[in-house]
Design a protein around this nucleic acid. Structure first.
Lengths: 189, 189
DNA sequence: TGCACCCGCCTAAGAGTATTAGGCAAATGC
DNA sequence: GCATTTGCCTAATACTCTTAGGCGGGTGCA
């Protein structure tokens, strides 16, 4: 019988594509086996179980997203950097909704610590270097930015902003303007 | 055979409790049947299928959450109202994580229109009456507030803010301060 | 009060998914 | 060139979802 050349890495990548096509919730061991032209139990040589598979896809997506963010941030500062980082998240979610959903998959504390998650918060912190915040305000701002990015993208993806004027892109741009203004003039405690 | 007295409404409510106990993703027809002390197929006299069951739980949670928000908003205005509304969402998510997750369940456009969803945006608009915004800025602000509320609550629930100082409650309070400041001084286009 | 009907719950059965155990053959290493 | 490892397979079990069809108790009408 011909070998399909499966590896945990390749399964994570194929799983990510499957997620974009069907939705992350539809990424099942069976569906992935079908896509790889292999019987279901064969996957168990490469991933421990369904949970492990999802975790690998999540880690893959987090890494890919962090790489995109790092590239977008290079050579930018201030509002320019803020918008660039924000757009990376929004564009990724729109182009790869399944992978974006995967990146929200709950990880164990150990897995989260070893993931690209810390890179994401470091990059948000880097954006804040363009503004004049010191701890603990910087941490509060990191959390606020993360909340707006994830919240907006996730509501937009769920269709919460569709079918009503004005265009959600316009709201996105105004939200980023507002965040920039806010960070430049962060309210004292 | 004794009648269990099942109704679609009661199933939605029991399902909501099950969601809080096990997580919304674990709310299955089988688990709900077990909880109600009946055989699985019995549920199909009351709900069309698993998707229908989840939808009913989502509608129940949206309604309950809207009722809580309406009660919290009564007699408040300005920042007071902003904080009250925001706290309703955060507290609900912390006390009823499964129901909160259910309230994010994707609804068909018709179901969404008939749900308590519109009440939620109306209440956010009502909060904005305490600030000086006109359309389309008001819509942009509604979307921004929704993004921050959902984004923060969802990241906090996923553990994104845990295990690191400062306390996430502090960040929440600072985020609301920031939003209030922002709305009082909304940047011109 | 008696009876027919309906409705609520049941058993039976088929399909899909997750997972484990064990086998065979192709690739790998000495 | 042979032994071992490794990759994929079949077989089997368990659980969930869903449909079909049966039985009996509660309800409504005479």
């Amino acid at each position: 019988m011909a070998r399909a050349g499966l590896t945990p890495e390749r399964l994570a990548q194929e799983g990510a594509e499957l997620a974009d096509e069907l939705g992350f919730d539809e990424v099942t061991v069976s569906a992935l086996a079908r896509r790889c032209g292999v019987k279901v139990p064969s996957l168990y040589s490469h991933v421990r179980n369904s949970q492990d598979l999802r975790t690998r896809i999540a880690l893959f997506a987090l890494e890919e997203l962090a790489d995109l963010a790092a590239a977008a941030l290079a050579g930018r500062a201030g509002k320019d950097a803020l918008v660039a980082l924000a757009d990376v998240y929004r564009d990724y979610a729109r182009e790869h909704p399944g992978r974006y959903a995967a990146s929200r998959f709950p990880l164990s504390p150990e897995a989260a610590a070893a993931s690209a998650g810390p890179r994401h918060s470091q990059m948000t912190r880097a954006v804040l270097r363009g503004y004049d915040l010191t701890e603990p305000d910087q941490t509060h701002a990191v959390r606020l930015l993360g909340s707006v990015f994830h919240g907006f993208v996730s509501l937009e993806l769920a269709g919460g902003f569709s079918h009503s004027a004005p265009d959600s892109r316009e709201s996105w741009s105004r939200a980023l303007d507002a965040l920039d203004a806010l960070l430049r003039n962060w309210p004292a405690n």
